[in-house]
Amino acid sequence: MIEETTEQTNTETWKPTILGILCNWCSYAGADLAGSSRMKHPANMRIVRVPCSGRVNPLFILKGFQMGFDGVMVLGCHPGDCHYAKGNYFARRRIMLIRELLQSMGIEPERFHFEWVSASEGARFAEVVTEMTANIEKIGPFCGVDCSRTPSAF
């Protein structure tokens, strides 16, 4: 499947695709606010709503890459603001491990982004999406796991 994707990718028409996994109470609301404030941003992200960033199973992130997304982003409430008191703290711990996992798989660290965006930060949301899109544009399409990038000890 990955090889097929690579072949289909025409570098001239290629545009980054990003999967965004957003917590319902802060970041999804922040994205809504960006909408109601008409804050324009690139149309490269597809959003999955979850109740809490603590709900994010590492599997979702890997699935995103497996499905050919060029980048994956998880957005949650700021520390201390979690609607469920501390779900975002668990998310933060898991994300640390996921970063290492992705690296050991040879996926560039820039392809994965974790960030706090609150319900009042519509502008921040638009900014984060814009930055992420620009970053992915810089590093190019995700063409599957690159074995030469995995650490030798692995």
Binding site: T17, P51, F60
Partner: peptide
């Protein structure tokens, strides 16, 4: 998200539902 045997489930946001959302865009290219 913590369960290792996928036995802890959340109604309305099941793993299968979220994965299906992601899979719906298989090989997505914009």
């Amino acid at each position: 998200a913590a369960c290792r045997s996928l036995s802890a489930k959340l109604r309305g946001f099941e793993d299968s539902q979220i994965l299906a959302e992601i899979e719906a865009l298989a090989n997505i290219k914009i």
